[in-house]
């Protein structure tokens, strides 16, 4: 399931950031997201979270949304995996 979440999350980021296929494969745990990529503003983050809910079949609460979880690819992936384990 870990690999699955990783793949889906990379695909979502690719769709949101308009990346070429495979480009999101270069992301590692430290790749900066919110606050690092100018195009990833609050509206784009909101879209990203909604897509994560749809495609990973998870529910993201208001309280879950905090800067740290959005800061790097690694943190976002850890969040998504923890949510999927819960559900």
């Amino acid at each position: 399931m870990t690999t699955d979440t990783d793949q889906i999350l990379r695909r979502i980021l690719g769709d949101v950031l308009g990346l070429r296929p495979g480009q999101a494969d270069e992301f590692d745990g430290d790749t900066g997201l919110f606050g690092h990529l100018p195009e990833l503003d609050s509206m784009a983050v909101a879209g990203l979270l909604t897509e994560m809910e749809d495609r990973l079949d998870i529910l993201i609460e208001d309280d879950d949304i905090e800067g740290e979880m959005l800061e790097t690819y690694g943190a976002l992936l850890a969040f998504a995996e923890a949510k999927r384990t819960q559900s």
Binding site: S42, M43, A46, G47, T50, D62, I65
Partner: peptide
């Protein structure tokens, strides 16, 4: 509802970054 949810969420993300706590409800 989906459009609204996303717009509200964007506002929450922006507010949180500015140090203000808001909830969807």
């Amino acid at each position: 509802a989906s459009i609204l949810r996303q717009m509200v969420r964007a506002r929450i993300v922006a507010s949180r970054e500015a140090g203000t706590e808001e909830t969807s409800e």
